[in-house]
Amino acid sequence: MTHTENTRVAVNGYGVIGKRVAAAVAAQDDMTLAGVADVATDWRVAVARAKGYPLFGATLEHVRAMTEAGLDPAGSLDDLLGAADVVVDCTPKKVAAGNVERYRERGIKFIVQGGEKHAVTGHSFTAENNYDTALGRQSTRVVSCNTTSTVRTLSALKQAGLLKKARGVLIRRATDPWESHLGGIMNTLVPEADIPSHQGPDAQTVDPELDVVTMAVKAPETLSHLHYWTVQLTREASKDEVLGALRASSRIAFIRMADGLVALNSVKELMADLGRPHDNLYEVAVWEDMLTVQGDEAFYAYMVDNQAIVIPETIDAIRALTEIEADGATSIEKTNEALGITGRLVPEPVAA
């Protein structure tokens, strides 16, 4: 493949993440969606076909089932892999690890999601941190939603020379919204048994120098996660200095309770009003007016859209693996422009 050709991207698994990855790939001017593969024959894949995405069955048996359902599949997963330069595996947790050998045998580049272990690829990715080390690799792992937000915010402080150590409490959504009828929890909170919870060590797979400890609890809601952080700075600093450090990341956006964004649901409603696909919040949404600095300690909270935050990272990972863009900052800029990530969520008032 020369750099004048579009990168052909396969998406294996058309669920919560897969459908968002497919839409994001289709929005890029240097990528072509080769197709999506799945095991289902329900409304989700029917929507994929209605969008004109080439549809493939995970196995020949699934191809037959799709054919019987009138979905007109283009072939099997093997056919899709043969027509692609890179595959983004968005299958359920632990399933991707079983697909890896097939990808390696075919010599196709591949990306797995944060539900898989770091050892599956030996490389864990966030675009602002280690784009360069992903260039030309056969594979990488885009870390989970919670880990992505942790690395984004702490790295912004670190790059400003302000981060000494961080301690975070993660209030996690219990399940994805469309599966609320299956495995949600009600009328209780479920603490994770281990301290640190897995997100802190996972962040260190991206940046081993981060001094971070996380604690987590599952809450009976599905919209997103909420993080509270206590950060010891390297020195005394002002609130404006901490805000400025966070503002340096194009994928951190400030929200304010003073604007009526007082809870997770109001921020999701804002995404809907902005016309974001699937109401996606790609950014880490930090409450600007809540952030407090006392001496050399900073305290802040933010919202993490578990279904959307990893999507821009996945697009950048595609460019890094396939080397269609050697510069991480340029890739981030291209992805941000295509997905409408501007660093600002509440529009400026229109002048009279």
Rank of each mutant, 00 (worst) to 15 (best):
1 M>R: 09
12 N>P: 00
30 D>K: 07
32 T>C: 06
35 G>W: 11
39 V>M: 15
43 W>L: 15
45 V>Q: 14
48 A>F: 12
51 K>R: 15
54 P>D: 10
56 F>G: 06
56 F>S: 02
60 L>C: 10
64 R>W: 05
67 T>P: 09
75 G>Q: 05
79 D>F: 13
88 V>D: 03
88 V>H: 04
88 V>C: 02
102 R>H: 10
102 R>A: 13
102 R>L: 15
103 Y>F: 15
105 E>N: 13
107 G>A: 04
116 E>K: 02
117 K>Q: 04
118 H>S: 09
119 A>S: 12
120 V>G: 03
123 H>K: 12
125 F>M: 14
132 D>A: 14
132 D>L: 02
141 R>I: 07
146 N>S: 04
147 T>F: 11
151 V>T: 00
154 L>D: 08
154 L>R: 01
157 L>E: 06
158 K>E: 07
161 G>R: 02
163 L>C: 11
164 K>G: 11
166 A>C: 14
167 R>S: 08
168 G>A: 11
174 A>T: 09
179 E>M: 05
179 E>I: 04
179 E>L: 05
180 S>A: 14
195 I>P: 03
195 I>C: 03
203 A>D: 10
206 V>H: 02
206 V>F: 01
206 V>P: 03
207 D>C: 09
208 P>V: 06
211 D>W: 08
217 V>Q: 03
218 K>I: 11
218 K>A: 14
218 K>E: 13
225 H>D: 09
236 E>L: 02
247 R>W: 10
250 S>Q: 13
258 A>G: 05
259 D>G: 01
261 L>F: 02
268 K>D: 03
273 D>H: 00
274 L>C: 05
274 L>D: 07
275 G>L: 07
287 W>T: 00
300 Y>M: 13
306 N>P: 04
313 E>N: 04
318 I>N: 04
321 L>A: 12
321 L>Q: 12
322 T>M: 01
325 E>T: 08
326 A>K: 09
328 G>I: 13
329 A>F: 05
333 E>P: 00
334 K>Y: 01
335 T>D: 01
336 N>R: 11
